[in-house]
Design a protein around this nucleic acid. Structure first.
Lengths: 247, 247
DNA sequence: ATAAATTTGTCCGTATGTATT
DNA sequence: GAATACATACGGACAAATTTA
């Protein structure tokens, strides 16, 4: 019942102590207060800092090792597997591949699902269609250097872009697909950014662990006549990505 | 895709089922798929949708009631306490007060701390000063309608803006303070957006509960000659704010 | 106005997971 | 690793408040 620090961890909060500790360690690494020189303090030190048992710290570290954030070496210590965030630029000419070209070797966009559906209200509004008009819904997973960067859902007017999904599968790129339909260029009209806890589908698709955060962007792209051609909601893994805005 | 009702929640993941359910409900509310007409489906229905026991759903709802997201009435149902996020616009002319003017009654920026310090490297870089040159550091708390919206730390060249903090205390506004120094206008050069778990200081200052998320913006403002005059890091409560970018 | 159906609130007991010593 | 205490999840039964028929 000895307690050096305060009760830093919240009990009865619905989040297991070991997971709270794991999140704190992750945070400490990302803002540089922990893991000086790539080496984590010994388990005993951490358990005192967080006011929990050493077993609990071990459970946290074990989870982070599993996740690839840490690497534990018996007798030597626990080390940080460093990796910096990708900077994803948001401009009038936002495109997935070109934006990350300088920072990554390999980029790929996979089509997870495709359906034609009646436009939900917010989609119809954004695309300036009648509510219920047929639209393509494409769910995609974007990878860069083998890491799952983002999960996106995009809607396109099915009347204007018949068979869009097939073209996308063939080209592997939104930009190239638009070109096939005579849209040689398009611009980002607006972007809404928010952040939340990853939901079950985020966890599954982006291979995140519970408690992880996603950056959510909701965007509208226009053709050069100012007509909306794409409405999309994208979930970025917040650990992997930051957004840059040049105004 | 219709959810069958099994295996949606992650067991043994370190996050209690009731908390996962709570997060899903919160998500469902914010994207409009749940809480049709302000009313949540009955507990039995939710428990079937999520594939958990009714008691588990009750635990989730109870937490959200505590949080002020929901309101439960015996015999009637459970209702959504609507409070929409503030849309914080990021443009070339980003200013706190004007940005939220249409959405809130009262806005205030409080000065929490002020020191003059030698510029840390990243600050010196951004402001194009010698490393270690004297800079003001102002830590502020922004409120709108009594809610803590964001916590900001800004740096200003102490040589160019002597006594900046005093002027800020007097005027209560960055824009007005700049005007006193002959800077009638300024523009947002760049903004970096990321998201992370709130740290101890965020929790304290913004009155958040553990596990909460903050949107972090790192921004540089230039005067009209293109010289950087302000470097700032702002933490927004992700539950209260979303960022809008018009490009 | 009354009864039935709905929906939230409370209680019991039991099994399993989590955290500490 | 073992023993202990507490938190979480489930199942069932019933009470209380409200709406519907």
């Amino acid at each position: 019942m000895e307690q050096t620090g305060e009760d830093l961890m919240e009990r009865r909060s619905g989040v297991a102590l070991w997971r709270q500790v794991a999140d704190r360690i992750r945070l400490g690494i990302s803002n540089g207060t922990l893991g000086e020189g790539g080496r984590l303090p010994p388990e005993i030190t951490l358990s005192q800092q967080f006011g929990v048992n050493r077993h609990t710290v071990r459970a946290a570290i074990s989870a982070l090792v599993q996740e690839g954030v840490l690497r534990a070496e018996q007798g030597r210590g626990t080390f940080v597997e460093s990796r910096k965030r990708l900077a994803y630029p948001i401009t009038t000419r936002t495109r997935f591949s070109t934006g990350l070209k300088d920072q990554t070797r390999a980029r790929r966009v996979n089509l997870l699902r495709h359906v034609v559906e009646p436009a939900p209200t917010r989609v119809a509004e954004a695309l300036q269609l009648e509510p219920g008009a047929p639209v393509h819904r494409l769910e995609t997973l974007s990878e860069a250097d083998g890491r799952c960067v983002s999960r996106g859902t995009s809607w396109f007017d099915a009347t204007r872009f018949p068979g869009f999904a097939d073209v996308f599968v063939e080209t592997g790129s939104i930009t190239a697909s638009f070109a096939r339909f005579g849209v040689d260029d398009y611009v980002r009209r607006s972007t809404l950014v928010s952040a939340r806890h990853a939901d079950a589908e985020d966890l599954d698709t982006l291979k995140l662990s519970p408690g992880a955060i996603v950056l959510v962007t909701i965007a509208i792209n226009d053709d050069l006549d100012g007509r909306p051609i794409q409405f999309s909601e994208t979930h970025f893994s917040a650990d992997l990505v930051e957004l840059t805005i040049e105004t």
